[in-house]
């Protein structure tokens, strides 16, 4: 028997999580459209299907806790507070983008939000998360580093080096694996000797758990407990969230390595309608309210696209800026 939502969070917080998941989905689906039109170019990795992980986890962190992620990070940035229009402008390569159009889809960053970056070399963010956690501990700031990564990253050397390091130096890092079953087209079973990713921390004496990542409240509760444990003990912890991406690895991926039946099964577990149903059943929102949230998200995304379209390109001289200070 599931606990009632109201026993976990106030109505406003629950609705905010719904709103963030819907905004993330609308944003990503709009990105796909803009990519098809040629407005977004380069690599584009979409998050549709995985929203419950970013939204549930971010809601459970403190506002100044560091967040780092990989290259499928639009939703993480927006949920943390990045303006959708500045993220969209970044994807369009415009000067008004969150990184002045220099980073693009894979390298969103905003230190004023403690959003410390999207990294596109698999596993590159692990040591950086440890360094940020070390700085926070050294400066007695009381904040932790939440490091998101995919199931593919756990076979990189940096994963193992960083787990060992974080435990050895007693660093407040919360490792959050978004296990969507595939590293591009290679399934976890074909890449990992031990497919139960959360169990891989035992060699480093780091506690861990698995959570159902299609349930935003389950993610929230697990991350809340884990983050407070990390903060209290100044030690790392790992959460493996089981999730699924509804689209291919990137826009260039037709996804032939997985069956239609598998994709349809996971789409039936879509975290957004599932959460909507609970909100209505428990009397937290009406269908009409939720529809209003969806329409508002569409307006926000349309405004973001318009802003990106109208924004100027970077000046040529910008190419030499920001490399050195």
């Amino acid at each position: 028997m599931e606990a009632k939502l109201r026993a976990i969070l106030p109505d406003a917080e629950l609705l905010k999580m719904y709103e963030q998941m819907v905004l993330s989905r609308e944003f990503e689906e709009s990105c796909a459209e803009q990519y098809t039109k040629g407005h977004i170019t380069g690599f584009l990795h979409l998050y549709s299907g995985q929203e419950a992980v970013a939204v549930g986890a971010t809601a459970a962190l403190h506002r100044d806790d560091f967040i780092l992620s990989a290259y499928r990070e639009h939703a993480q940035a927006i949920v943390r507070g990045a303006e959708p229009k500045r993220v969209m402008a970044e994807l369009f390569g415009k000067a008004t983008g969150i990184c002045k159009g220099k980073g693009g889809s894979m390298h969103l960053f905003d230190p004023s939000l403690s959003f410390m970056g999207g990294y596109a070399i698999v596993g590159g963010q692990f040591p950086i998360a440890c360094g940020l956690a070390f700085a926070a501990k050294y400066r007695k700031e009381g904040r932790i580093a939440a490091c998101f990564f995919g199931d593919g990253a756990v076979n990189q050397g940096t994963f193992h080096e960083s787990l060992n390091w974080a435990r050895l130096w007693e660093l407040p890092v919360l490792f959050i694996c978004e296990n969507n079953s595939y590293g591009i087209g290679t399934s976890v079973a074909r890449a990992s000797a031990l497919p139960d990713i959360h169990r891989r921390t035992c060699g480093y004496d780091i506690p861990s758990e698995r959570v159902y990542g299609m349930d935003v409240v389950a993610v929230y509760e697990a991350v809340k407990r884990a983050a407070e444990w990390v903060r209290e003990h100044n030690r790392p912890y790992l959460i493996e969230a089981i999730t699924y991406r509804f689209r291919g690895h990137s826009m260039a991926d037709p996804g032939k390595y997985r069956s239609l039946a598998e994709v349809e099964l996971w789409k039936s577990r879509d975290p957004i309608p599932g959460f909507a149903k609970r909100l209505v059943e428990e009397g937290i929102a009406t269908e009409a309210q939720l529809e209003g949230i969806r329409q508002q998200a569409q307006v926000t995304v349309a405004e973001a696209v318009a802003f990106a379209e109208e924004s100027p390109w970077p000046e040529d001289g910008e190419v030499w800026e920001d490399i050195y200070v």
Binding site: P127, L132, Y138, S162
Partner: peptide
């Protein structure tokens, strides 16, 4: 606290410094 031995993990030795520098050290 300030002078620290590390494991033999060169990539992480550098990466932790990248993060620490970003974090104000």
């Amino acid at each position: 606290e300030r002078v620290k031995d590390t494991p033999i993990s060169e990539n992480t030795i550098v990466g932790v410094a990248v993060g620490a520098a970003m974090g104000g050290l």
